[in-house]
């Protein structure tokens, strides 16, 4: 790698929850009895570097009966130390993820501007983040991208300083069987 990594580097991880949870591989693994451990994912990505924060962004959807999808996951992530930023779509609204993407891009830029991290790792394969990544790089921060095979855009990978393939990271654990 051209730029040498240092254990002193402060790493902040920004997870696009819907992008990773809706990936085919994750869905397939779920049917096989595996669940994605987001904490393990966020811990694995920095390697020996210092993890200083983890954000998760998602658009929740309220169903007709009032049930909000992934709310329990969001609560669990908050409990485990994530800063979770969400919006909630109402049943009559068209399903959209754009607001969550903009929230991620905004937080990525704001934290870079405040100098709270040296390296940002964006866990998403969405090319919508390319302008935000370039802006952060312009501020002198490094941006890495992590995504599952087959879920990322090649231009996104080109814009990043480093690319992590999540498939090779220890992120799965067996689901607990409930009676």
């Amino acid at each position: 790698m051209l730029v040498q990594e240092s254990v002193q580097d402060r790493v902040m991880v920004f997870v696009d929850l819907r992008n990773i949870l809706s990936a085919d591989l994750v869905r397939a693994r779920r049917t096989q009895g595996w669940e994605l451990d987001l904490v393990a994912l966020v811990r694995s990505l920095p390697g020996n570097r210092r993890l200083v924060g983890a954000y998760a962004f998602d658009t929740l959807r309220r169903q007709e009966d009032g049930y909000i999808s992934r709310l329990s996951l969001v609560r669990a992530l908050r409990f485990q130390g994530f800063r979770v930023i969400t919006t909630t779509d109402e049943p009559d609204e068209p399903e959209t993820q754009k607001e969550a993407d903009v929230m991620l891009a905004t937080e990525l830029l704001v934290q870079a501007y405040h100098g709270t991290y040296d390296v940002a790792i964006v866990v998403s394969g969405d090319r919508d983040f390319i302008p935000a990544i370039r802006a952060v790089q312009h501020l002198g921060r490094r941006v890495e991208v992590a995504a599952l095979q087959g879920t990322y855009d090649s231009k996104l990978v080109e814009s990043a300083d480093k690319f992590h393939i999540i498939d090779e990271l220890p992120v799965l654990r067996p689901m607990e069987v409930t009676a």
């Binding site: 994750v26 994605l36 498939d167 090779e168 220890p170």
Partner: peptide, 13 residues
Amino acid sequence: YEIHFTADLYRVV
């Protein structure tokens, strides 16, 4: 130990 499998299920850490 903390045990996790990789998403490709080729390795266990």
